[in-house]
């Protein structure tokens, strides 16, 4: 009986936040400050969702030293040599950004900020 109103209120908040817009300068580059298997799992799930549910392998230290997450096709080898030895294209890149106390993964290809739940982050300076 109590759950239903809570769910309704929660949905309203989510819907409101889904429509919220911020100025670009409000979100700043950041790195993960509480890296753990749980934060890697959350990122993995999110990026997999962005890629339509494909499985993806992330290094455990992603976004801890840089705010850029580069995703590329895994290197394959034939007879000991990389199949793609002269890659012409840039990898797809995502960025970790912070706004107030919240951390987001920014996908420039879709111009979308994805809020992160378990990840805490620290703003970093850009040279």
């Amino acid at each position: 009986m109590v759950l239903k109103p809570i769910l309704v209120i929660t949905s309203v908040v989510l819907l409101a936040s889904a429509c919220k817009t911020i100025e670009p300068a409000q979100a700043k580059p950041a790195v993960i400050s509480n890296s753990s298997p749980e934060t890697t799992a959350e990122l993995t799930q999110l990026v997999s969702t962005i890629y339509g549910g494909r499985s993806i392998t992330l290094a455990p230290d992603v976004l801890t030293e840089t705010n850029i997450l580069s995703i590329q096709i895994a290197p394959h080898k034939k007879d000991g040599l990389p199949v793609m030895g002269a890659i012409q294209e840039m990898p797809r890149q995502f960025q970790l950004l912070k706004h107030e106390d919240d951390c987001y993964l920014y996908d420039s290809q879709n111009d979308t900020l994805y809020p992160l739940e378990t990840i805490r982050c620290s703003q970093i300076k850009i040279p």
């Binding site: 989510l14 936040s17 889904a18 429509c19 919220k20 817009t21 911020i22 100025e23 670009p24 300068a25 979100a27 580059p29 999110l46 969702t49 962005i50 339509g52 030293e65 840089t66 705010n67 850029i68 890149q93 960025q95 950004l97 987001y104 920014y106 420039s108 111009d111 979308t112 900020l113 994805y114 809020p115 970093i124 300076k125 850009i126 040279p127």
Partner: peptide
């Protein structure tokens, strides 16, 4: 040095994970 600014060509929108599947659909 190993950081990069976002390409702020557009205003950013918050989008919950729940919305992703809707967008894909």
């Amino acid at each position: 040095m190993s950081t990069q600014n976002a390409n702020w060509a557009n205003r950013l929108k918050f989008l919950g994970l729940a919305s992703i599947s809707l967008a894909l659909i």
